[in-house]
Design a protein around this nucleic acid. Sequence first.
DNA 1: CCGTTGTTTAAGCTTGAACTTATATTAGCC
DNA 2: GGCTAATATAAGTTCAAGCTTAAACAACGG
Lengths: 117, 117
Amino acid sequence: MHAFDVLGDPVRRRILEILAEERHSSGEIVVIVGREFGITQSAISQHLKVLRDHGFATVQAEGPRRIYEIDPAPMAEVDEWLERFRHFWAPKLDALAVEVKRGQRKRRVCASRLGKR
Amino acid sequence: MHAFDVLGDPVRRRILEILAEERHSSGEIVVIVGREFGITQSAISQHLKVLRDHGFATVQAEGPRRIYEIDPAPMAEVDEWLERFRHFWAPKLDALAVEVKRGQRKRRVCASRLGKR
DNA sequence: CCGTTGTTTAAGCTTGAACTTATATTAGCC
DNA sequence: GGCTAATATAAGTTCAAGCTTAAACAACGG
């Protein structure tokens, strides 16, 4: 799993946080991240390439702009890797999650009841 | 969050996997990881230091050996960071988790019902 | 078709992380 | 105290990641 290597960089994590809220053009990301980290447009473009190459983001051309959209698949893998440790800090929640995955009907019933807080 | 930097290394991830199952002496880890990655005792000792320094593991002296034990706190932080992305791949499960955290009594009722699969 | 804007790519530099070898440290046994 | 085993630390090397500057490329309006 080298998705972790991708997440190892703070700039890339920040970009993912931004993309998690909504899709953005490369330029918009440059403005935000460039201001926060003080790095050039080129550097950010290179980070975007890493995210693309490792499946964390997809691109769509809109005129001259490149619109980036998050692809959560690799992060889901990371989440899965964490699974084996999760019982350390959330034993009951984890157990419940397993049960939730098991039966669709039961889950729906339960969720709807909990929904009426 | 630079817990991610710690997890960025495959050797350290492997060590954590091993420690997740049970506590081990430095030497035992060296045998397992050394064989798998083909690196020296010194290299592994340095990785163990990183894990110690960043709170991923605690040590206890037993005679001449150092027994390492996992400390999941930093990984819980990573898990928390993932929270904002989790709805992408597990929207309903996530929503349920939020609800579960909310009310203790309601959770217990629901969990016990789900427990009887 | 030329300039401009938005973006990527190329080339080179720098730094830090991970490794190795070699040395220090500590515990326990004789 | 001296020897061995278990581990950590020091010093030095190597390599890749991230950065910058500079150049290339694509889309569009004049």
